[in-house]
Amino acid sequence: MLSEFDDGIHVLDSGFFRPRLDAIHLIVERGRVAVVDTGVNDSVPRVFEALAALGLAPDSVDWVVLTHVHLDHAGGAGLLMSRLPSARLLVHPRGARHMIDPSKLVAGTVAVYGEDAARKMYGEIVPVPAERVVEAPDGFAIELAGRRLEAIDTPGHAKHHLCLVDAKAGVVFAGDTFGLSYRELDQGDRQFVVPSTTPVQFDPLALHASIDRIAALRPRAVAVTHFGPVGDVPRLAADLHRQIDAMVAMARDCASRCTGASAAATASAEGPAAALRDCLREGMRELVFAEALRQGWDADESELQRIFTLDIGLNADGLAAWLVSGGR
């Protein structure tokens, strides 16, 4: 459940959905702690178990940092903060209001998953008192026992996304901006990434720029929430750029084909939307399988489906939202 990366950085499995899907990162410096992303409400006991395993008390946590406010990253933030007496919450300025009043965030999640599924996955989202929330515009820095941690604005996956730069460790905590990297696909020390185009604010041009910004920092590792630190950053950045372009091309092709749907489908209120959804999901599945062949992943079709079943649907839905918004 808890593993150490290096230089006081620890990786905690949040337990969300399946093992090694969703990570919480702990940065420990001279007995003080920053928690990067929180998982969901059910993840909160794991944070305290991890602190205890490290010989640390709840009042050793000075900061809880959210890379963005999607609920697999931030759903447990309010509950966790309510049990951390000394912590402040660091969040992008666009996301701060949603932590103070999560009603719109919850409504958006219900729109994606449905009310029953959303409640089952995330539970009751607890608000964070406004006086404990610190907004982090681009370049805003905090200190953890003298260790500088700088927030940089990294839109593309979401407009409210920041990355946290840990210069001492040479690590960027990148949330979803630097894609998804699942440990089941590793080949020895060689790791792989797949972009995340989750609804509803995917912007390929902004995401390309954010990836370039991370790579320009020349970190020795990028810690992604799904799942953990990855190295060989230039190679992975190039892979992300190539795959984003392929996803955009596939989405545009689906939009073009589905626009020419039959008159019967066009007459149905759900026909064109359903056709586009199915095209995007099948297209995403084919892109994942093509990447598996390209990279030589040691996983058969059923294993790839198990690993990526959630992401295929979410990426397809994010591409659909991008097309509806104008698809630029």
Rank of each mutant, 00 (worst) to 15 (best):
D101H: 11
K104R: 14
V106M: 14
G108F: 03
A111H: 14
Y113N: 06
Y113E: 04
E115A: 12
D116E: 13
A117D: 06
A117V: 11
A118T: 01
G123D: 05
E124V: 06
E124M: 00
I125P: 04
V128H: 12
V128N: 07
A130I: 11
A130N: 00
E131R: 13
V133C: 14
E135K: 13
A136G: 04
A136L: 15
P137T: 11
D138P: 01
G139V: 02
F140R: 11
F140Q: 08
A141Q: 12
A141N: 03
L144Q: 10
G146D: 00
G146H: 05
R147V: 10
R148G: 00
R148Y: 01
E150H: 01
E150D: 01
I152A: 08
I152N: 00
P155F: 10
G156D: 12
G156W: 08
H157K: 05
H157E: 07
H157A: 04
A158S: 14
L162S: 13
C163Q: 03
L164Y: 06
L164R: 06
L164M: 14
D166P: 02
D166L: 01
K168S: 08
F173N: 02
F173C: 03
F173W: 07
G175L: 02
D176M: 01
T177W: 03
T177Y: 02
T177E: 03
F178K: 09
F178E: 05
G179T: 11
L180Y: 11
Y182R: 14
R183L: 06
E184M: 03
L185D: 11
D186R: 15
D186N: 15
D186T: 09
G188W: 12
G188T: 13
G188K: 14
R190V: 08
F192G: 06
F192I: 07
V193L: 11
V193Q: 08
V194M: 13
T198L: 06
T198D: 14
T198N: 10
P199I: 03
Q201V: 00
P204I: 04
A206T: 01
L207T: 07
L207K: 12
